[in-house]
Write a protein that binds this DNA or RNA. Sequence first.
DNA 1: TCTGGGGTCCTAGGACCC
DNA 2: TCTGGGGTCCTAGGACCC
Length: 412
Amino acid sequence: MQRLVCHVDMDAFFVSVEELFDPTLKGKPVVVGGQAGQRGVVAAASYAARKYGVHSAMPLRTAARLCPQATFVDGHPARYREYSKKIFAVLNRFSPLVEMASIDEAYVDLTGTERLHGPPLRAGHALHEAICKATSLNCSLGLASSRLVAKVTSDQAKPNGVLYILPGQEARFLAPLDVRKIPGVGRKTEAALRRLGIRYVGDLGKLAESFLASHFGRWGLALAGKARGEDAGGWFDSPIGSHEAAKSISHEHTFGEDTADAVQLETTLTKLSEMVAKRLREHRLYARTIQLKLRDEDFETTTRACTLDHATQLDAQIAAAVIGLFRKAWNGKTPIRLLGVYGGSLQQEEGQMNLLEEPRTARLRQTFRSVDHIRNRFGDASISLAKTLNNGIRERVHENPYDLPGKAPEGK
DNA sequence: TCTGGGGTCCTAGGACCC
DNA sequence: TCTGGGGTCCTAGGACCC
């Protein structure tokens, strides 16, 4: 049976959602991601702002210079997640095989749904209309025989379009496009290809695979396959809807101004550790690898990782590990721009429940569940570890956050 | 251009084991 | 003692995506 993949990509998603909450923004140059003077980058720009050269990933200050009259809006992740769920629900009516590839982008496997939804283009238009009706948001839609081609197609359909590539026409459709349009080809690969005189996808097809392999290794062979529109190898190869478990959970923070204040730095690491631990508990996951990320004033980035004897989801254990790494990695002088805390090598709760767990660790776990509950009701700032806060609630919740092997905390 | 925050995947080298 | 060929785990860095 002919495979039919649909890729759905929302148009200027964050901006469009903000317009629903504030209709006066409609038609104006709008930048989502932060205020004009802030450190940070553009998360999304309205089409009116794009006319001035503003685009996502651009520094906010640059955007403000290019388009001073733009309205700058802070992002609202909860709103975007809410709309993302609505979109998923609509897509699920068309096929059980749906995969959200990001908050504003999804793949739907429509293979074999012709009797239900009609031929590809009709199905596509029905989907497009259903999304618009349910969310009042525009999207663009690509239909093709592979995930890769469907994704490139939805991009070509923008804005607010539906496009179908007939089976057999994949390579011909891709050939005139810039190599940068191939997912996975970024700035570096584009530059490397340019040096070899390769600019368009069609140029790739003309080259011997041995040539590509000699310059790019395995990646070169994958590239040749992509130029033909194949999903073979790598992420695109996985079946649609086979959502895999998270592999890492992380939080990072860029300071408004670089700082070499050890107390501020370690307080921030503690806060980030708490956020990571909270999410681990929400997902019933345990992290065995803890990683620190440092970025200095020159934008030099270093990472330091350690693997624990036992996977954990406890604030204090993560904070202790990451602060240990930090004290070894930082010279105490260099101003720091960014700190990050990562949990990796994640394990499910099952299999982790080990009988050897110390009773006091089990009590701590219970304590943290209660802490999460309070945080969910009253906000993250309501309760915190010793390093970040000094109030009675924390004292009663647990003392001695770093020195776990010490005396057991008594009750709460 | 003065560069966020959340992720994924890949490579490469060293340790360690058989 | 100057020495092979995996396999796996761990760490560090980098490209890329939205």
